[in-house]
Design a binder for these strands. Sequence first.
DNA 1: ACCTATGTTGATAC
DNA 2: GGTATCAACATAGG
Length: 264
Amino acid sequence: MPELPEVERARSVIADHALDREIVAVDDSDTWVCRPHAPGEIAAALVGRTIERACRRGKSMWCELSGDGPVLGLHLGMSGRIIVDEFSGGDPQPRSMGPADSPWTRFSVRFADGGELALFDKRRLGRVVLDPNIDRLGPDAMEISRDEFRRRIGRSHAPLKARLLDQHAIAGVGNLLADQTLWLARQAPARPASDLADAELDELRRVLRRATRSAIELGGVHTGSFITHRTPGGVCPRCQAPLGRATVGGRTTWFCTAEQAYAP
DNA sequence: ACCTATGTTGATAC
DNA sequence: GGTATCAACATAGG
């Protein structure tokens, strides 16, 4: 669910609404979402401080806090969303209950003014952790340079889509954004990444940035022009050829059988 | 009822 | 080392 665009919107919700508010209480009692921390550990690091900055790389977020101490890492997993007071960002599912009284609130921070920041996450695949290790992530998909894109994507024999999904290679691309991007670029998902010429890699990067920016503006990866056609019986919105479905990089993959054909 | 599917990540095995 | 597979979680739908 949340890919780079949704996470960016969640980050901006924090940056726009949660900064410089004193933290007076923290519920970190979900030991699965907050692993490996014991209950109270995250609370002890946060109470009395304020969030000074909200940052993001790929699908990982972190909040820099006032004073000396750890940063607060947040990851939305597959179904998480961030709620600050009445504002929210992340997974696009509607919220039926307020964060405090919902059984799906997995972590929450109470501010001195009575407001609240919460992680709402039905599947509990999100994470809250102090000092998250983001060094293993590749460059952010919106920040990666042309040369680095050529190197990190184009030097693997793995299927092109698997390479785009590898967060160590490039951070932020999920299953839907990958399908949207490969369709826009008319590239076959299963084609070995190393088969692409530099000019094709450059074009792929350009298309990826455009698709990502569009998804941020429109509200999420589900707004991609190709995504609504990813369904049995769907046809390519450009050429009307039937869509194909396959598993690439372990993920369900849809593609135009005419424009994204690939025969090994 | 039971089985499958799901937008992520990580640990593990080859 | 790179790549593929499965498990972790919980819900929705056929």
